[in-house]
Design a binder for these strands. Structure first.
Length: 624
DNA sequence: AAGCATTGTCATAGT
DNA sequence: TGACTATGACAATGC
């Protein structure tokens, strides 16, 4: 039995370790407690410590402590919840949504201006389109830049109203009569995240401007319709670029691998453009992305503060993509965990097995010789119970025993030389098993074997059993301990017992119950430790997962910003003034508006607005 | 022999 | 108030 138990215990643990190594978590307790009761009993022993006294204690559940207010499960639950939330809060990373709406200008072939056809025209909304490109899992939304863009629009409205003319500070005049009106299309219609060719014109009369026109580059830029090429020169700046949304062409279609490559690596602009707006585009995104960049910087700062960097993230990702279940901390590797669990489990099994002895005792004969918990026996050389009593502070009883047990000469030795009470720690095993293991084969000494067996059984008796026997208690310790109080009192009433006997019986009952309570308590303690270990492991995994997600989000954010920058350069490089010349990036900049429109404004104005936004932000940050 | 693990027991607080 | 449980602390014992 012992070897079987050890074999099963170790085998189960090894199997669990193997499963954990391949990423499968196994809750041994689950199997032991609910799914495989026989296995549990083999390994841990019958859970008598949980159930023995439960038939008269309705408070306890089958597990003995499942719903008790003091249940460690409650502690574990709340502790785990708290720790989990704390860890998650530590690494909480919320990537704000990004919605960049850009509307490319196109020309009304008839020179008319209309804002009522948003579906026609060239949509350049990247809010979800970029997410599509980066994939749904890596979709990153960043609301702050969008908010910043809205601020851009507001600022622009305050400083240089982009629509309906009336633009002050120089060359802000808006000409609505021309055919090169620019349109600020409604972004809401941008169901498609697409770049598309505008089959027709959608020009908002209110926002038409003449300062921008599309050059003849459209033949090599599929984003622009041929119609746009023939836009007459515009007159002044800033220009409001109508980039009309359309759902006719998906972003994925337009951003074919080549197209995406073009976005990531902007195509060289034509010679004219390169002359003025070429690679040396000064701060191409200008104030458009500064907010976003600031966000990223702050994100990176945060990451650095947390001891986390993208390289780490990549490494983490590689590590955890394998989902090996290995924790970051080598000291908490599955092996170590399993080791601790193994030791704990073995300890638990030992304590449980002790209870199994108690339970086994319950099923044994009620005769005196067979009664009670098998186990804690006196040493064979020290049959003196009273001396043992004295050794553990039972002096009053000790004297009684000396008086009461004299009838048995073998137990009369109230002598100092029998001080040592041998503890047999195999008491948690059934005597039969011990007999089979320890006794010699039944072939030889039959009579001697029986005597040894009797001696052995006597050794297995607990001290209280010896005391009860010495006091001639007429019922078993098992009954004394486990009977409900009413039946217990009824039992006592059936016998004429001396005060000494009654006192012993009460002590036996008290000690027996406390013994099981102690076993129960220790088992719970072990379970608590194991659960905490599991909780720690879970938290470690959660933290690693959050870090990995954070790395993914940062990566997606970077990619998206690169795309936006490339798009900016694409668009800006193809803008032409009234003379067909490209705009100088040192003098002009594109600015996104919250409604999805794109404005071409003087760079000084853009920088001024960006500066104003920064000034606005500072007090807010200080407040934080 | 020291150290550790296990178990029984007591005292005490709480139910 | 008694019975019972839970648990910290201590001691005994075996390894």
């Amino acid at each position: 039995m012992l070897s079987l138990k050890k074999y099963l215990t170790e085998g189960l643990l090894q199997f669990t370790i193997l499963l954990s190594l391949i990423g499968v978590r196994v809750d041994v307790d689950t199997y032991l407690t609910s799914q495989l009761p026989p296995l549990r009993e083999i390994i841990l022993g019958p859970s008598s410590a949980y159930t023995q006294t439960q038939f008269h204690n309705l408070r306890n559940t089958l597990d003995g402590y499942g719903i008790h207010p003091k249940s460690i499960d409650l502690d574990n639950y709340f502790t785990a919840r708290r720790l989990l939330s704390q860890v998650r809060a530590l690494d909480r990373f919320q990537v704000p949504t990004t919605e960049v709406n850009a509307w490319l200008v196109h020309r009304d072939p008839e020179g008319s201006v209309s804002g009522s056809q948003p579906s026609s025209g060239l949509a350049l909304e990247s809010s979800s389109g970029l997410q599509d490109v980066t994939g749904p899992d890596n979709g990153v939304r960043e609301s702050e830049p969008e908010q910043g863009l809205s601020e851009d629009l507001e600022d622009l409205g305050a400083v240089a109203p982009p629509v309906s003319g009336d633009l002050t500070k120089e060359a802000m005049e808006v000409n609505t009569s021309g055919g090169e009106t620019l349109y600020s299309g409604p972004p809401g219609d941008a169901l498609s995240t697409s770049y598309s060719l505008a089959p027709s014109t959608a020009i908002n009369q209110n926002v038409s401007l003449h300062q921008a026109s599309l050059g003849s580059c459209s033949q090599d830029f599929s984003l622009f319709s041929p119609e746009v090429e023939s836009l007459p020169p515009a007159a002044s700046s800033p220009v409001l670029l109508p980039l009309v949304p359309s759902n006719s062409t998906s972003l994925n279609a337009t951003f074919s691998p080549g197209g995406l490559a073009g976005l990531f690596f902007p195509p060289q602009l034509n010679g004219t453009a390169n002359d003025t707006a070429g690679p040396e585009l000064p701060d191409p995104l200008g104030g458009l992305l500064d907010e976003a960049m600031l966000d990223e910087i702050s994100l990176m700062d945060l990451a650095i503060e947390e001891g986390f960097n993208p390289a780490q993230a990549s490494r983490l990702e590689e590590e955890f993509d394998s989902d090996s279940g290995l924790s970051l901390d080598s000291s908490h590797s599955p092996s170590s965990l399993s080791g601790s669990e193994g030791s704990s489990s073995s300890a638990s099994s030992a304590s449980s097995a002790s209870s199994s002895a108690s339970s086994a005792s319950s099923s044994t004969s009620s005769s005196f010789s067979e009664e009670g918990a098998v186990g804690y026996s006196s040493d064979s050389e020290t049959l003196d119970l009273e001396e043992a009593e004295g050794a553990v502070g039972y002096q009053p009883e000790y004297s009684k025993f000396c008086r009461m047990s004299y009838q048995d000469p073998s137990q009369l030795s109230c002598l100092p030389y029998l001080e040592h009470v041998g503890h047999n720690h195999t008491y948690n095993l059934a005597p039969s098993a011990l007999d089979a293991a320890d006794l010699p084969p039944a072939g030889g000494l039959k009579r001697g074997g029986k005597e040894k067996q009797a001696d052995f059984l006597e050794k297995q008796m607990s001290r209280d059993e010896h005391r009860a026997r010495a006091m001639k208690i007429p019922f078993t310790n098992d009954k004394i301990i486990n009977l409900p109080v009413e039946e217990f009192n009824e039992l006592l009433s059936k016998y004429q017992l001396s005060e000494a006997q009654l006192g012993l019986i009460r002590d036996i009952r008290r000690r027996g119950k406390n013994k099981m309570a102690a076993q129960n308590c220790r088992r719970r303690k072990l379970d608590t430790i194991l659960n905490l270990e599991r909780a720690v492991e879970d938290l470690r995994r959660d933290k690693a997962r959050l870090l990995r997600e954070k790395a993914d989000s940062l990566r997606s954010l970077r990619q998206m910003k690169q795309k936006v920058q490339s798009l900016y350069q694409e668009v800006f490089g193809r803008l032409r003034d009234e003379n067909g010349r490209p705009y100088s990036p040192s003098q002009y900049a594109l600015q996104y508006a919250g409604d999805g429109s794109v404005l071409l404004i003087p760079r000084a104005m853009a920088e001024q607005q960006a500066h104003a936004r920064r000034q606005e932000r500072k007090p807010k940050e200080r407040r934080k």
